[in-house]
Design a binder for these strands. Structure first.
Lengths: 208, 208
DNA sequence: AGTTGGTTTAACCAAGTGGTTAAATATAAT
DNA sequence: ATTATATTTAACCACTTGGTTAAACCAACT
């Protein structure tokens, strides 16, 4: 019973992504995942023994999508300013097309910290290396006194927050889908500009 | 059966805050709220007919806490740069002591958009006025070409995101509670500096 | 003491919940 | 055709969920 090119197992995972992303762990129902995949509920259990398992599969998928590209860009040979520009424009467009992922991951970190820790260990993801790379480049290439970790968090904040805040911008500021799309498009240049301008400010301030 | 100074109804609301903030709407259990308040479950129903009602009460409380101070600061007579400094340092300290609130509100906007819309209408909260005030000051006082809405979102992002990302910083970067506390303390100065430096950059860039 | 009003409770219920099981079906190999 | 294997299903279960009900409690007032 192959539907198009995907196996049933893949179709279930895709359905689970949709449901978990929209409803969160507690809000998601195994029945809804099954319906979304067009299969019986117990088939979901057949492939992924229980709810925790399938959640973990979905989380790993989302997390690695975010992290892989991040590492790729920040480990490359580019100068730091190029990295920022490339990273932000890539992330803003990726996230605005997968706007549920960041909040899903943050909630996962709150709800299932143990599961996440185990996953990080399994994939031996080491953020220290990344931070060391950033630290080195900020000091030796840009000669800035700004704390690299704060800078890193600022970059993430400016890239990620507006995507998380999508319903805030729509519900509270009444942006339409088109307006939001344009807003996200603008951020690809606005955010790098903002960051690079800020860095310029540090040059002037600390070169004394 | 008055416990200290608070009424039973207030004690239930406080308990509901705790539970909803930690578990979200779907994860929260009426029984847990009752236990937390030290009362029987059906007493919770007696005061707040159903789960939606008590959730709404909790949401309104959190939302108004965030918004009141924001309006207060941005409507004051201060120059814009002072507003930024004051706003950020106030928000960072408020949020780091109520770190569950921003994510709670964002999730609420996703989960219960209709409820939230109704609430905003009831309290006739109008963000247009706030934006107009910011727009005016950015143009006429600072003579900057930066889009005021993007600037506003940037300010929110830099203030709010690090608080939301608390479990990310702790779980992934392994920060201890003390380190996180210091990190938040530092942000009270780092963030305004970063923003004001960025604005300085815009002055140089666009004064031609 | 009796009445009244708000407050608090135990016991209960229908509707889901995640999860199990054993049987049915399709697919392919012998 | 028969067997073996992987896939798919309906029926079921123990348990939890939000919510109801009717009775008990308790202070204040008559």
């Amino acid at each position: 019973m192959e539907n198009s090119t995907s196996t049933t197992e893949e179709r279930i995972l895709e359905a689970a992504k949709k449901v978990f992303h929209c409803k969160g762990f507690d809000g998601a129902r195994m029945q809804e995942i099954a319906d979304e995949a067009g299969v019986n509920k117990s088939l979901v259990h057949y492939y992924y023994r229980n709810k925790d398992n399938i959640f973990q599969a979905v989380f790993e998928d989302a997390f690695s999508k975010l992290i892989t590209k991040l590492n790729e860009i920040f480990y490359s040979d580019l100068d730091f300013k190029s990295k920022i520009t490339i990273f932000v424009s890539y992330y803003v467009s990726f996230l605005s097309e997968n706007s549920y992922i960041p909040l899903f991951i943050l909630n996962g970190l709150y709800e299932k910290p143990d599961m996440i820790k185990a996953m990080l260990k399994k994939k031996n993801f080491a953020p220290e290396k990344l931070m060391e790379q950033i630290r080195k480049q900020v000091k030796e290439e840009l000669h800035l006194e700004i704390d690299p970790f704060h800078l890193y968090i600022n970059i993430l904040a400016l890239s990620i927050f507006p995507v998380i805040a999508k319903p805030l911008i729509q519900t509270i500021f009444g942006y339409s889908n088109d307006q939001l799309k344009q807003f996200n498009e603008e951020r690809k240049t606005v955010v790098p500009d903002f960051i690079l301008n800020a860095l310029k400010g540090y040059e002037n301030e600390h070169r004394n």
